[in-house]
Nucleic acid binder design. Structure first.
Lengths: 139, 139
DNA sequence: TGCAGTATTTAGAACAGTTCTAAACTTCTT
DNA sequence: AAGAAGTTTAGAACTGTTCTAAATACTGCA
């Protein structure tokens, strides 16, 4: 308490295995970039640029595959803020987003202090999956 | 009171002129489909299918142009709920959305009863543009 | 360790949604 | 009615993403 400890070990092969994914070199390289330091927001393109510059370059198709697999495994959350571009967020906990237009910058903010009251009940035959709050701001 | 009156006249050429847009046959045909009966959610494709079946077919490029112009003129609101697909909403008033996955159905709900408390202040140098709440539900 | 079996990676093609181009056509103003 | 400016159109181009099928890597087991 007080001192922040990593919530998960930095052993990326193990973390991938735990998520049901084989720890290939490519996935490990991507996981390192994504999860090694604090929370991040990436697009497939931005992550591809990063990993291309690294010691373990990875094809664009693999970046897309990995992002989709990480999301399906619960390691990432996909955030839809702009048409025709997918952002992935390494913060999978409860929180919401600022989206700065027109730059396309995305910032988290914690949901602890945010309360939403008066939401209607979901349409018949559906169950609630998630509530996304996007605060759009302009320069 | 009690009896619902149209908030705007159904004279589409005049409404378009008022929005700074020339009332061409194509724009009038699209405006009719969009605004003649209650609030609607469309995509460029869905509106194109509709207007193709009408007495005044319109090219896909024109549907895209018109939707973007109507949005810029404040006649429509663009709703981003899924990557790679833009929805346009004829309801430009304050309200939020249900998004039914995986069908892609979108439903309005009024914002009157919804209150959001505890939103942080926008990042330095930005001003608030809009708060979008998307309630994602699954079958 | 070596091998087979399965999963993964890759480059490039394919695809979906959207925007662009430039020639033909409308609309508006006079 | 004529000229100027704005609009429409088909198709090409573009962007972001997924697919294909051949090559390669990982895993479990002898």
């Amino acid at each position: 308490m007080g001192v922040t400890m990593p919530t998960t070990s930095p052993d990326f092969p193990d973390r991938l295995r735990a998520a049901g994914l084989r720890p290939t070199r490519q996935r490990v390289a991507l996981a390192r970039l994504l999860f090694e330091s604090g929370h991040r927001h990436v697009t497939a393109e931005s992550l591809h640029v990063e990993v291309k510059a690294s010691r373990m370059p990875v094809s664009l198709a693999t970046v897309y595959n990995a992002l989709n697999q990480f999301r399906d495994a619960g390691l990432l959350r996909e955030v839809v803020v702009a048409p025709g571009r997918s952002y992935f967020d390494t913060n999978t906990g409860h929180h919401h987003h600022f989206f700065v237009e027109p730059d396309g910058e995305l910032h988290d903010f914690p949901s602890e202090k945010v309360t939403i009251a008066g939401l209607p009940t979901p349409p018949k035959g559906t169950r609630l999956a998630r509530v996304d709050v996007i605060v759009r701001v302009r320069r």
